[in-house]
Amino acid sequence: MARTISYREALNEALAQEMERDESVIVLGEDNAGGAGSPGEDDAWGGVLGVTKGLYHRFPGRVLDTPISESAFVGAAIGAATSGLRPVAELMFIDFMGVCFDQIFNQAAKFRYMFGGKAKTPVVIRTMYGAGLRAAAQHSQALYPIFTHIPGLKVVVPSSPYEAKGLMIQSIRDDDPVIFCEHKAMYDVTGEVPEDSYTIPFGEAGVVRDGDDVTIVAIGRMVSVAEEAAKQLADSGVEAEIIDPRTTSPLDTETILESVENTGRLVVVDEATPRCNLATDISALVAKEAFGSLRAPIEMVTAPHTPVPFSDALEDLYIPDAQRVANAVKTVVEWKR
């Protein structure tokens, strides 16, 4: 039965249902079992934000608490994946991924290709991204574009509890390495989620809202920002179509192009810094493949090219908001040659 649960609960349910279904699914990461401030494993914390809570006792021996050594446990997860398990590793902050780039970029991403298709690496690396929790420059980045850049990785950026559960189950069942990016400010966002297991295929964008005046492509948490902007715009008679790619790799280019061919205008909203991010990638795609349909230059709404500020006031300014999206839409709608 569909009921309203949080993004955190949706992820927890996905993990639990897959662990129930398939014994080869294991979970590992820092504080997945014990947890900061708890007296030990018995008082399961479930990761710093509680996503794996309850799994340690439910699935004895299959939830591993790891030392603070990302390069070691991510490497272990990748190795376990190549030898028959389906590990879900939690790498607390996407910002820490740098210490295990070799394991991810040069090993996991390459195995299928370099072993002539004889190796598979069904590993999921769950990680938190995004600004808004006053966590400063080293814990707030939106680094999914870096992984999107690497052939051999699949990159998932869910925008709602429904997406989170279905994409997590798909990620676990997928035979390739998946980087699963959870926005840290979304764990308490709620939405309708079926109790049954289900999968959302990779590379199929969601159309969140229909409109004929402008296409807004928004990534992850920015989908709800775009929806807020679209509501404001509708009051002034501008109907925006909102597309949520769901996965940045593979990318559903067809849905984006079809929409722009209809609306003739594109605004891309991406919380990542502006150089070589999804906004530039999708803008390049549309400029090349749908140039003839464009009635105005493409607008990109992104963070500025700076680290995420520590100051609350500056951090709030840093994150794209509905007003900036609405302004960008007005720019493309009112644009005259």
Partner: peptide
């Protein structure tokens, strides 16, 4: 035949089983 109808049906079709 709205997008919502197609979305709702896909939500159903994606369920295991």
């Amino acid at each position: 035949v709205t997008r919502q109808l197609a979305d709702d049906l896909m939500r159903y079709k994606r369920l295991d089983g």
